[in-house]
Each structure stands twice: as structure tokens, then as C-alpha cells.
Amino acid sequence: MLAQQGDFASHLEHLASVGAVGTEVREPADLNDLDGLILPGGESTTISKGLERDDLAERVIEFGREGRPILGTCAGMILLARDHLGLLDISVKRNAFGRQRASFEEELEIPAVAPGNSFPCIFIRAPWVEQSGPEVEVLGELDGHPIAVRQGSILALSFHPELSDDDRVHGAFASECREARSSGDR
């Protein structure tokens, strides 16, 4: 769990409730032995500067290229895009829906992210995906704009599952991490 800045504590609570052990990552050594990484919601500018300051950017890129699962929510999506870490072949529009007054919550059907019932999606000054490369799979859209995308083992969401009471996204991510560990050579 990247803990430079943002709502990482909410992610950790969700991980705990799905039976996964989460630890805070603030420096490169904290990444050792992790099965997966979450880039939380927060201020992407602040987190991005923190990643550079703490020599974490390169390490996170390596982590993703090794095929270890990564989940990015909101600011996390921005950080995964081409302009920052470049782990996802997407360009994003920041604050795409507007400033805080335009922030909203909405129940959306995104079966590939949360099978079954609709998911309570909370959008806070949220980004959307403006353009994506051929290897990127769009899992969910809102008003014609992608808000959930996957490329290999990396999943990015415009909204904040960690702010909802629904554990399905974290449950699926924890399972993916367990599978990646048992199938990998780590």
C-alpha cells in the first residue's frame, strides 16, 4: 500500500476485511516481498513528487513490469498513466468531471470489476481515460468515457472503492495477488 499521501488507511481497512495483510510503503525497501501494490486516492501531484523524492518511482515501475498486480484508484490511475509511471498505455484527463462541487456518487454496473450487483462508485474530482493503446481493456464507462481499465495485471479505476462499504474490488485484488504469488517464482 503506497503511503506517501492520500486515503491509504481506507484501503488498508478494506484489505483487512477481505483477509489480506497490508503494509505501508514509504521507501524502496518496503516494496520487497509484496505480492501486490495499491496506489491510493489522494493528490496525484503530491504523491508523484513523493515518489521521486523517496526514490520509489523506478522501483514501482519494476514492480509492475515483473507482472505483480497493481490497483490504482483515482490519483493512482493518474500515476499509472503515460505521463507519470507509464505502466498503463493510457492518457488521462485530470479533474475531468470538474471541481469538488461536481463530485458525485453513483451505482454503476461494472461486471468485470465487481460481478453481480451494481457497485457504489464514488467520484472525487475524478479523472477519466482520454485515450488508450491497443493492449488496454476498457472495463467500464460513464457518459462514454472509460472509468475502469486493465492492462495485464494492472487495474485502474477513476472512482474510490475504498470509500464505499463494498469489499468486492479489494476481495478480487487480494485473490489476484494470491494467484500471482502461487504461480510466480517468488
Binding site: 492520500g6 491509504f8 481506507s10 486516492g41 463530485s103 472525487i124 474530482r125
Partner: peptide, 16 residues
């Protein structure tokens, strides 16, 4: 403007 959307922004500012 729900309470969750309002506190949501406050959550985003944590650690900052």
C-alpha cells in the same frame, strides 16, 4: 454533495 462525497475529498487530503 452527499456526506460521503464531502468527506471523500477530506480523505484524499490525508497525509498531506
Amino acid at each position: 454533495g452527499t456526506f460521503r462525497v464531502k468527506t471523500g475529498l477530506a480523505e484524499m487530503l490525508k497525509g498531506g
